[in-house]
Write a protein that binds this DNA or RNA. Structure first.
Lengths: 339, 339
DNA sequence: AGCGCTTACCCAATCGATTGGGTAAGCTTC
DNA sequence: GAAGCTTACCCAATCGATTGGGTAAGCGCT
């Protein structure tokens, strides 16, 4: 069992020469499904092939395989940014699920910019990925119709887009959960930090919240809904706007934990105590939510599971099966910020 | 067998046929450096080739190219987890720098587990990456000597390992910065939340701190250095241990922001006010450090730049140049938690 | 006219694996 | 004992691009 020190990789032909048989036989034994492998060689020969392959550490050249089979076993993943914890965790789910079905995931950042999205998608296609998982869909037009027209297999993740298959959290339901919770706690004057209007996550969470709030008999004006960036800075600014606009709300729902944290900062700056003076509920239940001095209530979405679902959807698409979008159930984690 | 009848990609041969010339001529015009392209065709022909290529959207098949050239233009990146913000940002730097030199980055999570690390590295090699960037090096043996023996080009990132090239923050210096700062503020009884002993980041930051502290005339016993996990939970437990061990320190240096945040939680639980009662300094200056109710002082490391440096190092390695490890300078962000 | 040189190409092998189509030997079956 | 079927293989084309080595035509020069 001497590891030959990385001269050239062992090829099928090497194995065949060593065993005095034809490369095609080796190929069939090593890489075919059981049935067709059976007809290819006697069990004794198959045994010898497998043993030699293991001994010399044969690993098939994926470039050669792809060239011949027209499949790369690569899944392209486009996300706004991996430094966004939500997408990073979804990607972990994707990677794991992809590996289990023999695919590798190949991820890139688009900075949530539609031009960059288009470039990155083309880059992925130039690499000949078998399919795409798109995590930065913009409700106001992006590359999707074009992909569909070109018959390129893809699914969306995190954000949905009407007419295309996606794996998401049921964000509408998540907004409803937040509304029900705050209503139950007796709040009647609330504001929403709504996020970016081009992201379905923001839109759905907001409309879920507002819809449920009104259904419960609550009142919520359009100017207590403030669109904002998803980061702390965005949350801070949005909260400033809310406080400047009129009587302070007794509760704020932010569609993103980071925006919620920013809003908490603003409330403190204005001398308000988060919780008693103004409740705050965030979204995603990122690991820090629970660690804050005043732990943040947050809607928890099953991020890794969403990643795994996206891979399942894409696999079905690749097999030509019709697919239905998946929406996973969120749950609410109530903590001190709204208790 | 799916009937993937989507338009077949245009090949060199297609272009050649269309123009009535030989594929090799097309190849030389489109893919060679200026000099050898010159000899390959007349300017007129070259023009026609380029025009047709642009018109039909020719994009070379990377699998075919790789098969022939034995290079994939793929860089494998192994990190503990992308949901670790530090690595996610470094990866953004890697991706950007790689794209600029015509490479694609291909990233995978090892969960900071040496067996998984080995598996993921082998997976990358099976995909025939041209080189590796390893972000989860363990000081106590890992796959590195094996890679070296097999003459596989690689560089380390974030964590260093004696004898192997790496791009890191100068963590020793970072520890020193923290020590100098706390000493200047008049602290004399300090503790260190030291992180995982297998990570050079933790070891260097700790030894930098302790070394400088002693050089300044300070006293620091071994049992005020507590090794811990890198997350908030780890920080919380470490702080508990510190408080249980004896008189409370007046300052704590945690080698990681998340551990620092955990420690801040524990201090609060014990009725201590972060800052006045016990200063806290973290490391990495992750985006949340500044957003906490009591903003966290933190040593800032140039994460994206470390990522870019790693790519430069690896490129030099691939070109056969000798490389020297890169250590980038940290800076200290002083905030309320230690002011 | 003949020689050498340049220009502008073409030719064919090659990278490693896959796969439809052989075929020779041996065994049944009648 | 011949047709027919299995078994256990082999053969060769193919995927798309690269690259070392041609070569024919045209030109300048003596």
């Amino acid at each position: 069992m001497d590891n030959n020190t990385s001269e050239r990789a062992v090829t099928l032909k090497d194995l065949a020469r060593e065993l005095g048989i034809h490369p095609s036989t080796v190929s069939r034994v090593l890489h075919s499904d059981a049935e067709s492998a059976r007809g290819a060689a006697s069990e004794a020969t198959a045994q010898r092939i497998r043993e030699l392959a293991a001994e010399v550490g044969y690993s098939p050249d994926p470039q050669a395989t792809s060239l011949r089979t027209r499949r790369t076993k690569l899944l392209g993943v486009v996300v706004p940014r991996l430094s966004d914890l939500v997408l990073a965790i979804m990607y972990e789910g994707i990677e794991e699920a992809a590996a289990r079905i023999g695919y590798s995931a190949f991820v890139t950042n688009s900075r949530d910019d539609v031009d960059e999205q288009r470039r990155k998608v083309e880059m992925m296609l130039a690499r000949r990925v078998d399919g795409l998982i798109i995590g930065d869909s913009h409700l106001d037009g992006d590359v999707l119709p074009d992909l569909k027209r070109r018959a390129i297999p893809f699914v969306l993740i995190n954000r949905r887009h009407p007419g295309f298959p996606s794996a998401t959290c049921d964000d509408t339901r998540g907004g409803e959960l937040a509304a029900e919770h705050l209503w139950d706690k007796g709040h009647r004057r609330v504001s929403v930090i709504a996020g970016e209007p081009y992201a379905s996550t923001a839109v759905d969470r907001t409309s879920g919240f507002v819809g449920r709030w009104r259904a419960l008999g609550g009142d919520i004006t359009d100017d207590s809904i403030v669109w904002s960036r998803f980061d702390t800075q965005g949350g801070r600014e949005a909260a400033e706007k809310i406080l400047a606009a009129g009587p302070a709300p007794t509760a704020i729902f932010a569609v993103n934990d980071f925006a919620a944290i920013g809003a908490m900062g603003t409330l403190r700056t204005h001398g308000m105590i988060v919780g008693p003076d103004c409740a705050v509920v965030g979204y995603n239940d990122t690991s820090l939510a629970a660690e804050l001095p005043i732990p943040l209530s947050s809607v928890r979405s099953p991020m890794a599971e969403i990643g795994r679902s996206a891979v399942r959807l894409l696999q079905d698409t690749l097999r030509g099966k019709p697919v239905e979008s998946v929406r996973l159930e969120p749950t609410l984690q109530v903590r001190e910020s709204s208790a």
